[in-house]
Design a protein around this nucleic acid. Structure first.
Lengths: 149, 149
DNA sequence: CTCAATGCAAACTATTTGCATTCGA
DNA sequence: TCGAATGCAAATAGTTTGCATTGAG
């Protein structure tokens, strides 16, 4: 079942309603590669649909997260971001501290070691956050990295 | 050189001033095991020193981070926390989502794998964040975890 | 004495909420 | 029709800042 169906299903089961705004937001959200903040998406949507409200975007993204088709991520820049959740494709992030580029990675070995760490301390892991911050290949070129002394 | 000396040194070199408030904050901060938010520390200090201001605590913690004796950590609960930085003792965290317990861990293998991931994408890592969220041993006992169906 | 630090209150930022109105089922 | 959703504006919460005053060097 794809994300659109999951959402529609969730809405139906909960007795909620499927509005135009929700469909517009869903479409833009799913078709994007980027990690949207509420504001990013709001500004983008407003170009096509000037009547849309920030609160609606916000509440809709929360709803996406609630029904599992979006994941909230926080790169510590002061705003929450949302990415489409592709079932059974958990991944972590590399974040360029200069240009903001976000690269996704998966590493089963790390996942495995995490489990071992948790076991050692008798923790039951529910979720984790693993982000590597640094300079991407472009930004670490000396030409664009004047901070090298 | 210990953290107190590092701080005093930093203050001197930068032409800043060493006030009573800063010493009070430094002492409480360094002697704590916990991961203080600005508010935590402010409330704690205010008991002994009722005249101290929130902004002073905030600016002082920022100053600690700036001179390297404190690390800012964010467990996604909406407030920044600070922990004393013990030189060359990098560690990550296990956070209990039920009782808030924080356990520190280090795992050289994971650190190594991170480097490999970064290398693969040509990133130069500056820092990372790695947190495992779940239930600690106490909180995963069925008696205190009614959410087990 | 001078300029940094303080403490207060006010400004900010992202997020969340109250409420009258609109609209989907 | 009826309750959920919307859009606006206002409320929150954490953080940051302006400024008059205090105080360290």
């Amino acid at each position: 079942m794809d994300n659109v169906s999951i959402f529609k299903d969730y809405v139906r089961r909960r007795g909620l309603k499927n509005t135009n705004q929700r469909m517009m937001i869903l479409e833009d959200f799913l078709n994007s590669k980027s990690h949207y903040s509420t504001e990013d998406l709001y500004l983008k949507l407003r170009k096509k649909h000037p009547q849309i409200g920030y609160a609606t975007v916000h509440r809709t993204l929360k709803l996406f997260a609630e029904c599992g088709i979006a994941i909230e991520v926080d790169f510590g820049d002061g705003q929450m971001r949302y990415e489409p959740s592709h079932v059974d494709q958990h991944h972590d992030h590399l974040v360029c501290t200069n240009c903001g580029l976000i690269v996704e990675f998966t590493n089963p070995q790390i996942e495995q070691l995490q489990q071992e760490v948790a076991a050692k301390f008798n923790f039951k892991i529910e979720r984790h956050r693993h982000e590597l911050y640094g300079l991407c290949s472009k930004c670490s070129d000396s030409s664009v990295n004047p901070s090298q002394r």
